[in-house]
């Protein structure tokens, strides 16, 4: 397999702060090439494709960190905590940061940024000329194990994943680089934070467009397993449930994001 790490080195965020000082933040996030593959959706109706082909793409090696997001809000005042519109981020947006431009002790520079909305995550990606990964892309990259292409049969990965699910959200998140890289060289897809995907708002739709009660059935109470590809993949159900519980301006203590990009 051929990994082509490309770097968004030297992207320089330069901004004039209110006080007149100048802030520099160099963003050196590494993008990893995810080879083309096939995403098998967790829940599927007869109208849905059993396998969704996914073209090769670039994906952040690790989730976006507090330091990187600081550069973004420094350059884009409308995304600062005190200035963001409630339409785009709810009132707990970056609540754990010490100030508008000061992540502080609860948000170490190298830890994934959390309490960011879908709108904010998207704006960040757009600022770098990137985008959020789609559900299919994210799940394809996350399907890899540590040491083998299939994560579902990688016992070490499964153990870490369920151990993470079993623990409450820590008050201060670990550095993103501490997450073990998977077979494709991507870190922290499991076991660090949940992550936004661009099309998170497909999560609840299952093909019945004839009334919303038809949709509810697919998520709630037992019916959750109807048409499931693999009803034993509890972690996939949990990601699905989380995505479908969210509104685009929501933020939570364990929800961050990473960026993706089309191959040049």
């Amino acid at each position: 397999m051929n990994f082509l790490p490309s770097f968004r080195l030297g992207v320089l965020a330069l901004s004039l702060l209110a006080g007149g000082s100048v802030a520099f933040a160099r963003l050196d996030a590494k993008l990893v090439t995810i080879p083309a593959g096939v995403y098998t959706p967790l829940l599927r109706t007869t109208k849905d494709a059993a396998a969704v082909p996914v073209a090769a793409f670039l994906l952040d090696e690790k989730p976006v960190t507090n330091a990187e997001f600081l550069a973004f809000v420094t350059a884009n005042p409308k995304w600062r905590r005190s200035q963001v519109s409630p339409l785009f981020a709810d009132s707990s947006y970056l609540e754990h940061w010490a100030g508008d431009l000061e992540p502080g002790p609860k948000a170490p520079p190298g830890a994934p940024v959390v309490r960011v909305s879908w709108f904010a995550a998207r704006a960040y990606a757009r600022w770098l000329g990137q985008r959020l990964p789609t559900t299919a892309e994210w799940e394809l990259a996350a399907a890899a194990g540590y040491t083998q292409p299939a994560g579902r049969t990688d016992e070490a990965l499964q153990r870490d994943l369920y151990a993470w699910l079993a623990r409450p959200v820590p008050a201060v998140l670990a550095d993103a680089t501490t997450a073990r890289a998977n077979y494709l060289g991507v870190r922290g897809l499991h076991g660090l934070v949940w992550e936004w995907v661009d099309d998170f708002n497909t999560a609840m739709v299952t093909g019945e467009s004839r009334g919303d009660t038809g949709l509810e059935r697919d998520l709630f109470c037992g019916a959750g397993t109807v048409g499931a590809k693999d009803p034993t993949d509890y972690a996939a159900f949990m990601r699905q449930a989380l995505r479908s519980s969210l509104k685009a301006n929501n933020t939570t203590t364990s929800l961050g994001f990473r960026c993706a990009k089309d191959l040049p």
């Binding site: 109208k47 849905d48 709108f119 708002n201 739709v205 093909g207 467009s209 919303d212 949709l215």
Partner: peptide, 24 residues
């Protein structure tokens, strides 16, 4: 379209045959 749907709380997805399932 994705952004407007997010603003409205509309969920939608394209099916294999090109049609869309969506919130009403």
């Amino acid at each position: 379209v994705r952004e407007l749907a997010a603003l409205l709380g509309v969920k939608y997805k394209q099916e294999a045959d090109g049609a869309f399932s969506h919130s009403n």
